[in-house]
Design a protein around this nucleic acid. Sequence first.
RNA 1: GGAGGCAUAGCUCAGCUGGUCAGAGUGCUUGCUUGACAUGCAAGAGGUCACUGGUUCGAUUCCAGUUGUCUCCACCA
Length: 898
Amino acid sequence: MKTELSKTYNPQSIEKKIYETWEKEGCFRGVIDHDKEHFSISMPPPNVTGQLHMGHAVDNTIQDILVRFKRMQGYSTLWLPGTDHAAIATEAKIVEAMRQEGLSKEDLGRDKFMERAWAWKEKYGNRIVEQLRTLGTSCDWEREHFTMDEQCSKAVLEVFVNLYNEGKIYRGNRLVNWCPKCQTSISDAEVEYEEHDGNFWHILYPVKETGDFLEIATTRPETMLGDTAVAINPEDERYKKFHGCHVILPLINKEIPIVLDEHADIEKGTGVVKITPAHDPNDFEVGQRHSLPLVRCFTYDGKMTGAEDYQAYCDLKASGRMTENEPEVLDCGKYAGMTTQDARKAIVADLEALGLLKEIEPLKHDVGTCYRCHSTIEPMISKQWFVKMKSLAEPAIKAVEDGELRFVPERFTKIYLNWMRNTRDWCISRQLWWGHRIPAWFCQDCGELHVAKEAPTVCAKCNSTNLEQDPDTLDTWFSSALWPFSILGWPEETPDYNYFYPTNTLVTGYDIIGFWVSRMIFSGLAYTGKLPFDTVVIHGIVRDAQGRKMSKSLGNGVDPLEVIDQYGADALRFMLIQGCSPGNDIRYTDDKIIAMRNFTNKIWNASRFLLLNLSIDKVELPDTKDLALEDKWILSKLNQVTKEITQNLENYDMGIAAQKIYDFAWNVFCDWYIELSKIRLNGDDPVAKNNVEKVLAYVLTDILKLLHPFMPFITEEIFQAMGLTEGFLMCQSWPEYQEELNFSEVAQMESIMDMIKAIREVRAELKVPNSKKVQVTLVTGQTATYQNAEDYLIRLAGASSVTVTDSDLSDISGMASVTTADAKAYLPIAEMVDIEAEKARIQTEIEKAKKELSFFESKLGNPNFTSKAPQKVIDEIREKEAKVKSLIKNLEGSYNAL
RNA sequence: GGAGGCAUAGCUCAGCUGGUCAGAGUGCUUGCUUGACAUGCAAGAGGUCACUGGUUCGAUUCCAGUUGUCUCCACCA
């Protein structure tokens, strides 16, 4: 049933309706079909309380293109959507909302807080999911997951307990990146470095044995209270006399040793380094090497420690529950309770008063900040849970080195390998409440640690029932790392897991290769024994019109929802894909989105034209013998472009594929074929009209199919409006290349097209008005080719009639001439021709052609070329040479005749 | 400090495995109420493909170096 279309395309009225229909009819549902190959993708889960941004838009557009393409190719396709609990990000939002009500986490307590958090999730969790739908994402919502839902949590427990039992998870005092604002540890990957203006404070430490002073440069003088040594390089001649000596730590007058360690760089600073093992990762290493004590002088909320903190330490010590590397805690005395920043000022002032501050050297340096709140990170000794990375990383490195997993584009392999090879143990505990709670219980009586999937009721060691669960939760990436298989049911061997796992392709931005991709790879290998996917497609980020990163603080973000509302999801999708190369950043500009909106409108109107003219009731091609020249031409072109686009999509070259379908639909189909089709559509031969209708419908249908992965909405809408085929476009088969649809007549058609273009050119140049139709006389050796040209030239070149002859005209005075490689055309537009100008024009063309000719001749005359170049290339050049020669001959003929 | 990207028409960018491929969109100029579309049609101008070497019969394409620019990682005690 055909439907009439409006004059301009109006996406707003269409997209929502179509999406709802698809969803209602179950078009997105993944079906287990053992007769088919599967194609599955797990969607990078957006933050549950997040809002759709351009990054999501690119990521999901790429996935949707792949999924729709594969679905049409006949794969049993499953795209698994879901959301991430985004521990720290979400908790920060909830805490902020509570703060506005004057509440803190502690006010509520853990249970009440969690209730609020879940309520928050229920309230906002659906927002992003709804927003994704507006993009047209064809994911299976019936299989939607959440990283904290029952199934995912089960996988988390399984992995944690197994790893712990295998000794790959351990708990210990280590240096971690501590955010004093979020009051939690964060992983190395979550630290962002920002350049700050700071100082190098040069401090003098008196040497006890000799009475000399050692000059030490530091950017963090407030850490000196926690110094437990100073280090010099054993090879450093300047300081040899201090080997074995001690310094007196100023301000607190504590004696600490001078140690010899490679870490002290002779070239750098003064060559003497203060060692603060509890507050600096390098110093921690030095401390371990020299068995130095650990002294903590900061609290976890970013202040200097005081008497209470010291007392707590004494109590712990007295309880006998000290673990390895348990740090001492200093009572900072007059500095106690100050923020680290205030303490810095006070300490510098005091040192200066003592005459121990030698110099303040301004210095720009990078300061670690929290990726969420951008507070300065304080490295801190802290008791945390870690995943031992070495044995997990090895197979993950090997699999990629062996090519079992491929990054697209290839260059990201190196970034991944770099990350994996240098990765240190992963700190997985967070001092947050929103997340998966660590399945570890401590016996309050004997201190025994129990790790289990379910809470133990009694202590296995002392039979006490006084057990308490570790208060910490897991890094949000711990559950994301399991995503591709936890959402399929793992650790259960569910039908979904057995059929759809491993997934095929992962699509994500280069910014989370380390955070996420690498962790899924080692997790998949370690727990399922398989790579979670075989291809990782990496895309760039979307930048603003000036090329800046879109960010909240700059306020330069473009809201995809507004763009969709204004121009349609199809235009946005196409803009994000067309002409972009894999892995490169994309710039968002209004110009581009408007151009793409115009393209949707073009498609719309071409279809509208067809619908106004079609009287057929199904899509089928006429018999080959009934095909006109232009039919054979367009079918060959379509066939060719189908082959290329399919190939491009299979290679993940979506930008090129989109470019090609754009070009074919607009510049080939609309600009030429539709125009040519009007000859028969408006003619009086009903059989010819029926034939051209068939070809038009056939080609348009294939265009809709080829375009569908990129622009799902408009293509489906038109397909339905045409009413020639049962079912949804999204469920149709992908067009295939057919050898029998390659016709040799293409060259003929193109010769005629060359002539049309040449006539248009000369008409434009001679300012012949469009309304003026002229008689055209064609002189050619290829009369057969041009036999049918009359209709074409009348339609497209402003001809009133066409005469074809193979003999040169005797009298062409007063005629303008047009020359192509195999024909000349004469147009009686003498009254408008300035003979001299015409001569000059032809002369210029001759010169241009001669230049080309000499290029070919010099190539062909070069024996090195003819002997070494492949025959195909030589033949091509020969052909072109012949063509140019013929063109020159024709041109010269015209010139002489004038 | 380590790694990588980018440098092509005024602007924004494509260009796969080296061979007239110098391209698209937009902008600009000119002409069009051409019964699908002015969100359009037709014609045109515009580039030493950053610079210097090398490999090759041949380099925008491959290699090395230089310059400019952006990003990631590590780190400056």
